[in-house]
Design a protein around this nucleic acid. Structure first.
Lengths: 195, 195
DNA sequence: GTCTATAGGCAGATAGAC
DNA sequence: GTCTATCTGCCTATAGAC
């Protein structure tokens, strides 16, 4: 073990985050409790507080890990998909994968609860969106240079619209429990803006 | 008074709904309490329970009233705006007005909390979205017949995409507290799909 | 690191006086 | 219709034993 901690317990914070993440993505930050997480892991409430003293800190850790993982996926797309249209399609597929797990985007659902979140979580949500927009903007600029994408207006502005549209498509598809609806919306919204 | 109730108290249920509606649109259904409403109205918790015995019933009443009011706005648009493109623009303006009140669409924010809502509220949220789609579909069909709108695919499917895109634009614009961002997104998303 | 035990507060909800 | 008073339960969080 790199950390030198008890091997059997080494992954505990990660397993806590795994369970909490799924709960937040399905029920929202105000819709889950320490007890929900504890019950699933068969540990006590107090044990969770050892790893994440406050719910706010747990929330910050959730966003940080989610953002890291998402960023890694974006880098993987850039490494594996050469053309800009393919990268945008792969980007939409990331959202579809989340939806397949019957989840909302973590930061999408936190955006809905934004006015009730601790300040540090708010800032982290914004950073997630900003990072997504920066990546999308880069893809758009590259696509325009290569001639594989054509659009009017500022790339950053288009990137914002793509993010909004995909988050909205997730938000609405989930009550209908309809993955195909999301994919249909995503396809239309993307092709529409890049006609 | 048509109801024959105490004049001074006649509007109490409405005032309760007014306060609760704003709280839900800003903080979510799991982010407000009877006490929050009571404090704003300077009445007691128990008094609220007289009018709305359970939080679920309060939630159902909120969606019912919101849907009625929204439907009335849609009829007003059809009566006042002759052309289909103008109707779509007016539809987007309804969302902008909500956002100006620093609120999310009531059913949009409830969609995020969907998995935690009582069954009757879930059904009512779906009905709201369906009603919106039916209206949008009608506008799209009329626009295509008149030649003022052109698009590929089923009108109902486009209507779904418009709803998703506008809800998403609201969801993301609110953390940024940026009305212009919403309007820019809405314009692009609409013109893109109806190119 | 995990436990038992518990604190202190707020949630939704009810009984009964006025 | 609104009040006071109260119930029960869950919430986040902490103290201290093991």
């Amino acid at each position: 073990m790199a950390t030198g901690t008890n091997p059997a317990a080494a992954g505990t914070p990660q397993r806590i985050l795994d369970v909490a993440e799924r709960l937040v993505q399905r029920r929202g930050f105000n819709g889950f409790s320490y007890s929900n997480v504890a019950a699933e892991l068969s540990v006590t409430n107090a044990s969770l507080h050892y790893h994440f003293p406050t719910k706010a800190e747990l929330g910050e850790a959730l966003i940080a890990r989610y953002t890291e993982r998402f960023t890694a996926e974006l880098e993987r797309i850039e490494a594996g998909v050469p053309d800009a249209p393919g990268r945008l399609a792969a980007y939409a597929d990331l959202y579809a994968d989340v939806l397949r797990g019957e989840r909302m985007c973590l930061c999408g659902i936190l955006a809905a609860e934004y006015q009730t979140l601790p300040a540090l979580m708010c800032a982290a949500v914004i950073r997630f969106f900003d990072q997504n927009e920066v990546w999308l903007e880069r893809v758009l600029i590259k696509g325009r240079e290569e001639g594989s994408l054509s659009f009017d207006g500022e790339p950053r502005s288009i990137a914002q619209s793509i993010l909004s549209a995909l988050e909205g498509a997730m938000l609405i598809a989930r009550p209908y429990d309809d993955l195909e609806r999301f994919q249909s919306d995503a396809r239309r919204l993307l092709t529409g803006m890049l006609a």
